[in-house]
Amino acid sequence: MDVLLFGCGRVGRAFCELLCRKSDMLKRASISLVGVATKSRGCIYNPHGIDVDDMLRWESITGRIDALSRGGCSVIQDSNEMLRDINYDVLVDCTPSDFDLGEPARSIIIKAIQKGKHVITANTAAMSLYFDEIMDEALEMGVKVLYEATVLSGTPLFSLVRDGLPGCRIKRFEGILNGTCNYILSIMEMGCSFDEALLETQRRGLSEQNPWVDIDGLEAAAKTVIVAKSLMGLNVGMSQVHVKGIRNVTTQAIEDAKRRGGKLKLLSRVEINADDLDITVNPEILSMGHPLAYLEGFSVGALLLTDMIGEICVSGSGSGPKETSYSLLRDLLSLKGR
């Protein structure tokens, strides 16, 4: 199975590093990376498989993906040419999320699907804005689109429900979906102000280039929409999510939560009531009896209420590029096994 990677930023590079670490397993599974396309650092193609370790070494020296132009590698001038002309089986999309337009990920994904290629994506924005269009197009073309990496980074959610809960209906979803916000609130519990906690997050390179996408709840809202559509079959969009981020959370609010025997968390919720739909992203005080109250730092997690076996909670201790890259690999192995 030949893989074309679009985007080699933090997540794309972590995915490549993971391919290096798991090279023996991937070789046994006949999975190889044949193309890498970037917006400004070049594109390369090798129909026999790219030496990923060599590519990363040259990229770290030169800053260019296309510095590796030996061992059968061809330099491609245009990323659109990669989508259109080279031979591959699966597109792995690691392009940055644009929460306004969902581009270029949407166009890249649709073009790959129309060529009859499977797609694995980490792009939260594109999947939240164009979920129905993308999935309908994939159904028509008879290909798979997998997107485990879009919501809980490396922690299984969609695969858990798909493979582990067949026949279950999800009646309610609650989640801590943004690791940056959870980290900031955890730091504030130690006595830091919001501004101090945000600066610490940026200093350590742990937030997005535009941190307000996280802080104002936009990324969490996009993830919540994907969950509502994928796991609950709801016809909802971003405009239907009631969003309040953590920008105005004070140390006083953190202390009030402690006095009330709980913790303040940015909680996503989707709940189907008798005659209403509740879909929100808000700072909420969780009692210490709530499974998600114990998630600290960059941990993320979800609590699902099912109609057959009650509540199920999943959580992961990290939500960075390394964890996200594992979900991409898991989806890739899932495709190979089908």
Rank of each mutant, 00 (worst) to 15 (best):
D2F: 08
L5V: 11
F6R: 02
C8L: 06
V11W: 05
V11K: 04
G12S: 09
R13I: 02
E17F: 01
L26F: 09
R28K: 09
I31N: 00
S32M: 07
A37P: 01
A37C: 10
G42L: 04
C43F: 03
I44D: 00
N46P: 13
N46H: 04
H48A: 15
G49R: 02
D51F: 01
D53Q: 12
L56P: 13
R57M: 11
W58K: 15
I61L: 15
R64N: 13
I65M: 10
L68R: 04
S74Q: 14
S74F: 08
I76P: 01
Q77A: 14
S79G: 12
D85C: 10
I86Y: 04
N87Q: 14
Y88R: 13
V90M: 05
C94M: 09
G102H: 05
E103W: 00
I109A: 04
I109V: 14
I109Q: 03
I109C: 07
I109L: 11
A112P: 06
Q114S: 06
G116N: 10
G116K: 12
H118P: 02
S128K: 07
L129S: 10
D132E: 14
E137Y: 15
A138M: 13
V145K: 01
Y147V: 10
A149W: 01
A149R: 02
T150L: 03
L152F: 05
V161I: 15
V161N: 04
V161Q: 02
D163A: 12
P166I: 14
R169V: 12
R172I: 07
G175V: 09
G175Q: 07
L177E: 05
L177R: 04
N178Y: 07
I187D: 00
M188V: 08
E189T: 06
M190G: 06
C192G: 08
L198M: 06
Q202H: 07
R204P: 12
L206H: 07
S207G: 13
N210A: 11
P211S: 10
I215F: 04
E219D: 09
A221Q: 07
K223Q: 13
I226F: 03
V227E: 03
K229E: 07
S230M: 06
L231A: 09
V236L: 05
Q240T: 12
H242C: 11
V243C: 04
I246P: 01
N248A: 12
T250F: 12
I254S: 02
D256S: 14
D256F: 12
A257H: 09
K258I: 08
R260L: 06
R260D: 15
S268W: 09
E271S: 10
E271I: 03
E271N: 14
D278K: 09
V281E: 03
N282F: 11
F298H: 10
V300T: 10
V300D: 00
A302G: 06
L303H: 12
M308L: 15
E311P: 00
V314P: 02
S315F: 12
T324F: 05
L328Q: 02
L328S: 00
R330W: 08
R330K: 13
D331F: 14
S334C: 12
L335Y: 15
G337Q: 15
